[in-house]
């Protein structure tokens, strides 16, 4: 069973600084996937994630335990990524996801079937179709699909990160999945299901 973040933080407060490695192990891949979706360059995402962990470490005493540690960490990474995008404004094919609660415009790259999570699918045709159909989703749905499946966040983590009621997250994801199921029926039929 994965040790709870609160227990890990208690260990750090008690002087076991090496316990922070558990948090790094737990969240580095998710943060990297999240930031990579925002900045579009894997190497830059790695550097930004490292910076996010360093910033979290330096300000660990300012963490408010009424929120999830993962939410705090993702917000740090989000702000770093936004700053990075502002500093390195360049032509992008990213999709505008509107404005977040801090007034920052948010973008996430279109899923690319040739790289990132979709590149791991053995069925290349399904990967291409999935990228296309996820790209066709309304931005609010697309962002939740990315957070849930490409970043690997749980429903409650998404709810807290996006400051949405848990039920809203579940409903929107259910609708997004239903749209995808309808659109990808042909490919899913080959996997053992059809509409």
């Amino acid at each position: 069973m994965v040790e709870d973040d609160a227990l890990t933080l208690d260990r750090i407060r008690a002087g076991d600084d090496s316990a922070f490695a558990l948090l790094v192990r737990r969240y580095e891949p998710k943060l990297r996937a999240y930031v990579a979706q925002m900045v579009g360059v894997e190497e830059e995402a790695r550097d930004l994630v490292q910076e996010a962990f360093i910033r979290a470490w330096k300000h660990l005493d300012q963490y408010d335990p009424t929120f999830r540690f993962s939410t705090w960490l993702f917000r740090i990474a989000h702000n770093l990524a936004i700053d990075h995008i502002r500093r390195n404004r360049r032509p992008t094919v990213s999709l505008d996801l509107g404005v977040d609660d801090e007034g920052d415009s948010m973008q996430m790259d279109l899923p690319d079937p040739g790289r990132g999570p979709l590149a791991t699918l053995a069925n290349r045709e399904l990967a291409r179709a999935m990228a296309r159909e996820i790209g066709n989703l309304p931005p609010a749905y697309r962002e939740l699909v990315v957070l849930r499946h490409f970043v690997g966040l749980a429903y409650n983590e998404i709810a807290e990160l996006k400051r949405l009621p848990l039920g809203t997250v579940k409903n929107k994801l259910f609708r997004a999945h239903s749209v995808l199921r309808e659109a990808l029926g042909e490919y899913l039929g080959q996997l053992g299901g059809a509409t």
Binding site: E28, P117, T120, L126, V145, F150, V151, H177, G193, A194
Partner: peptide
Amino acid sequence: CRACQAHAALVAQLDSLAPAAA
């Protein structure tokens, strides 16, 4: 139910996209 089969297949495919461990 083929619709639910498709839904399960879609969720399984999407869940397989989660990032690997560090």
